[in-house]
Amino acid sequence: MNKIKVTMRFSANDITIPVTYHLVKDYDLMVNILNADISLNKIGTLVADLAGEQENIEQGLEFIRGLGVDVRIFNKNIIWEADKCIHCGACTAVCPSGALVMDKTDWSLTFDREKCLICGLCVKACPINVMNITDNGE
C-alpha cells in the first residue's frame, strides 16, 4: 500500500460532487483529511493523505483533476534536527495542525510527521534554526 499527501484547491462555487466519497467508494482509497478550508463562494483547500494501491491512487488523482480541481502532491519535507533542538516551544505557537506539540511530562518537543501540513511556518518561527524544509527530489 502507498500513501501520498496532497493539497486540493477548488475554485469558488465550482464543486458539487462529493469528492471524498468517490475517492473512497470508487477508488478504494483511505482519505485522511488533515486540513480543510472550504466555504461558500470562496476558493477552498483540502489537505489530505491518500492511501491505497498505487494504481488506485493514480486513477483517483486523475478523477479529481478531471473535475477541474488543482491537485498538488507534497514533495517537500520538514526536517527537524532533534539533537540540536533546545525544546523552547516557539514552533508550537505557529503550527496549525498540532504536528508540533510539547510533551507535558518532560517538556520536550514532539513532531508527528503524519499531521504535518508542510506549511513551513515552524521553519521561520524556530529561533535557533533547527527546522528546515527540503525537497524530497520527487
Binding site: H87, G89, M102, D106
Partner: peptide
C-alpha cells in the same frame, strides 16, 4: 486559545 512556551523548561 493554544498557549506555547518560549523558554525551555526541559533545559
Amino acid at each position: 486559545v493554544q498557549t506555547s512556551p518560549l523558554s525551555s523548561l526541559k533545559v
